[in-house]
Design a protein around this nucleic acid. Structure first.
Lengths: 158, 158
DNA sequence: ATCTTTAACCAAATTATATTTGGCTACAAA
DNA sequence: TTTGTAGCCAAATATAATTTGGTTAAAGAT
């Protein structure tokens, strides 16, 4: 991934595509004040440089029967490279675990988990997560509601 | 938002669009085994029903100078509706706070925060977050690395 | 100072893709 | 049995992406 210098126009493009990636190139061009050709050129450059990583649809969990989301703090039995790798491998194939971050502070990892209901969640935790042998402790926080979930990062001006 | 019944084809569409929303309708049609016309019809139906909420580009934080991401556990001074509303309002305009979830367990809220560096993070926390008058305690967890960040929810089969 | 190169841009042509149309089939309700 | 409806397809059309060729302006070289 190259190191690319972004100008104000690039940042505007990034902001707009984070907000809504289904905007047409023509509309995007209009909003940033350029014609379609150089607009597309800039978008391609941002993609090739790895600044834009990917494009995704976001679906409403409830409408597909996913009623429970949680954050889980995980502590490992010994916070060493080997155990971290084992843990990483173990969680990778559990599709209900949609995020896994290695953190400083109280625990070692924080997971985000999504599943149908509390029963399914309990089963997942008992059968799969707490069974991972390097896992020491787990602390679940059930999401009651989400007040903010912005897909737009706060781009610095330089 | 209507209650829509999803069949296996709809779920396949949702999976593919979550994975990569820039796929062409023709390619999507091919992968689900239908022609473009009914494929598009299904996508439109999913959008109109609110199952597909939005489309977004994902950018690489590091490549735009965003080097620090954290989770923050927040406790409020009294967990009542009024204070929750005040908190909600206060965090809404802080663009570095990209997520805010109301949770059960140890704290009252968990935030996800993204900013340039530790100095900027400290300033943000001191100047803006800890200043919110309903905030009682804060506990930061800095993300060292992210092992998994799937944009694809685990769709139940019915 | 003047040349040369390069990057960024535009308008317009072309290519690719989305979208609409009309009609067919199969299943379900009347 | 009939009638309506949902879901599908192929093909026509409309829209959008992409390419092309050429212009301008700024930076570095002579």
């Amino acid at each position: 991934m190259k190191n690319i210098k972004l100008d104000a126009t690039d940042r505007k493009i990034l902001e707009l595509l984070q907000k809504n990636s289904n905007i047409t190139n023509a509309q995007l061009a209009k909003e940033i004040g350029l014609s379609p050709a150089p607009t597309l050129e800039r978008v391609n450059k941002l993609e090739n440089a790895g600044v834009i990583k990917s494009y995704h649809a976001v679906i409403d969990p409830a409408s597909v029967g996913l009623g429970v989301s949680t954050f889980v703090m995980v502590s490992l039995k010994g916070h060493n490279k080997d155990n971290i790798n084992k843990f990483n491998k173990a969680i990778h194939d559990i599709e209900e675990i949609v995020e896994c971050h290695h953190i400083t502070g109280a625990g070692d990892f924080v997971l985000k988990i999504v599943c149908s209901d509390i029963a399914a969640y309990q089963q997942l935790m008992l059968d799969k997560v707490s069974n991972i042998d390097v896992v020491d402790g787990l602390q679940s926080m059930v999401i009651l509601s989400t007040f903010k979930d912005s897909k737009v990062l706060p781009l610095p001006n330089n």
